[in-house]
Nucleic acid binder design. Structure first.
Lengths: 344, 344
DNA sequence: CCTTGGCACTCCCGACGCCCGAGTGCTAAA
DNA sequence: TTTAGCACTCGGGCGTCGGGAGTGCCAAGG
């Protein structure tokens, strides 16, 4: 399909354009990159690459710019990944391990991803699915108000207010909590749907409605995404005029969530980094953006993603190492918690 | 100081500039606003206002633009506040009352403020200070991990993980929780500092360290600010090129918090709306911004603020009504919760 | 004395024309 | 097959220019 020269040149075009944000011409390529070819030869190759749809010209007599498809070929075949310095890597992991709170951990991870990549970072909180219920408690507030607290094996604590129609006595509450614990402790959260919950509610007898309220709330995760450094998007020259649409998009967690889900579903394999480029996005706001996402796991289950978002002119190699290292870090931290708990 | 004519003209200049974002000239003023004066007369008044430092000329032979000081005079003496339609107001309150969660309530309020004002909105979560501890629970997770859950009278639920050096038995945990409840329930959170905590830790005997961990964590509120619609900032013509600094600023909750605190301290009276304009801000990022903030209360205590942020060319009247209505709404919702709880 | 019309002046802004440089495609020679 | 040369194209920067909006000042009029 592409010969070696075309590959070298495409790689050079992407590298140059990523760092300069200017269309790159044959002369620059011949000078700056050790290709050993004259501009004229390079021009021929460039024309071929353009015919293949991998490069575009913003206008006649301008240099070339990679097309979405060009970036696609670049990330799949040409990109040179350089691993992080072990010391840097250790430092990142240390910072992640230091966070004492789930929320902290995610925020910290997002910040690190943003700094490493120079992009906006998005971290999806661990889905409760796959995680198990590690502790459950009903805290009485008034005789009609309770707070349900669920601690999952991910370390996530979710709490939900529950309001009853009728008063309930404190010892009834604790009996109820005991009953719930017997049935729910150590059960995976994603098993708690439909029939299971119904039958449990049946068995619990009189507080059926309360149980239903409790259970349907256990399912919903609290806040599902953490976003860091939207300012990095605003700094990109390609978004100088049009940040507002993007910011709007990022302001709606439900959209971000759906989109992250979509991105992950495009991953070649569960552990791999998924990359979505420009026009490959469904949402019109993202047509000029690329996203690089890596999943992290809890136990063996994929739990969420670390992602960075930038213009299609993105330093994909850096982004890939950043998200994969940080996702691995998350997996490790969660893994440590799990095994630490197993020790007891 | 200013005669009636100057006041009318200043008001007209601000009104016009706010809606058009263009420097306004004497002719426009004479035509669009029913001043009954010729452009020449207006010019004289404009020159006077400029001498007073209330107007600026971007350059000779351009129209006038209000200076920070001009806006200051406008908001303090000239601004015409129009109350919201009762139906709209009721609708807002309904939406606020519908939120079932503290977090929801704040997010919803921020969104509403952003929509009403067309600006970016910031809501500071209720400070635990003044609020009382309504429920407290220690949820055992493993034999060394606990989760502390505190429900305050504001409806806020805070949870904190606690890790111990030594294992603790479940019944010890519940005894401890009972003890803590005896000492802490219904105590105002802001009374829980220094000596009080120390002496409590002393009295609790052997789990002194645990107690200390618990108590110092009760104090810290979870996330203190909710920000909505940064996109509205990016849409303002004055920030087309320079959003990134602002976004950076808003990305750091600790800075936003300190700043909100500063803004509030400038309020003329506890209940009043505080307005800070352009150069009145200490932070360099905010020199071109204005903020309008209203406090909401829980019981009689000021608990937090609802604020909107925009360019100095801000529709102050709309902003003031928006934040005051929404802050009043918050106060009402919190008040209802308090009295609802008092009924029991 | 205040207001107003007139007038000369200033300045921004957009349009136009110009040129330069960067880049291309093509062709012919090595 | 590569390369040098050449003619061509196009965008961007720059100076010029005119229009328009606005001002300040002055003198006349209520």
């Amino acid at each position: 399909m592409l010969n070696q020269r075309q590959r070298d040149i495409l790689r050079a075009v992407v590298d140059d354009y990523v760092s300069t944000a200017e269309p790159v011409g044959s002369r620059t390529l011949s000078r700056k990159y050790g290709l050993g070819l004259s501009p004229a030869t390079i021009r021929n190759a460039l024309a071929d690459l353009e015919d293949e749809g991998l490069l575009r010209q913003p206008h006649t007599s301008a240099g070339r710019v990679p097309s979405d498809q060009g970036y696609r070929v670049f990330v799949e075949e040409l990109m040179a990944l350089s691993p992080l310095e072990p010391s840097v890597r250790a430092d990142l992991l240390r910072r992640q391990a230091e966070a004492d709170d789930l929320r902290d951990l995610l925020t910290q991870t997002a910040r690190l991803a943003a700094v490493l990549s120079g992009c906006t970072a998005i971290v999806r909180a661990p889905r409760p699915a796959g995680a198990r219920i590690r502790a459950l408690s009903l805290v009485p507030v008034t005789d009609r108000d309770l707070v349900l607290v669920v601690v999952s094996s991910t370390g996530a604590v979710t709490h939900r207010p529950i309001t009853l129609d009728e008063p309930i006595a404190p010892d009834e509450v604790s009996a109820l909590a005991l009953g719930l614990r017997q049935h729910l402790l150590d059960r995976p959260l994603d098993a708690l749907t439909g029939r299971v919950l119904e039958s449990l509610a049946e068995r619990m007898g009189r507080h059926r409605d309360l149980i239903r309220q409790v259970l349907c709330r256990v399912e919903a995760p609290d806040d599902a995404v953490v976003i860091a450094q939207t300012a990095n998007l605003a700094r990109q020259p390609e978004f100088q005029q049009r940040v507002d649409g993007l910011l709007d998009f990022l302001d709606r967690p439900e959209r971000v969530l759906r989109w992250m889900h979509e991105v992950r579903s495009g991953a070649p394999s569960p552990g791999a980094v998924s990359i979505r480029i420009g026009g490959e996005h469904r949402d019109p706001e993202l047509q000029a953006c690329s996203v690089v996402a890596a999943s992290y796991t809890i136990g063996d289950e994929v739990a969420g993603e670390v992602a960075v978002l930038g213009p299609t002119r993105l330093d994909y190699a850096t982004a890939v190492t950043a998200v994969s290292v940080l996702a691995a870090g998350l997996s490790e931290v969660f893994g440590a918690r799990l095994s630490g708990e197993g020790r007891q």
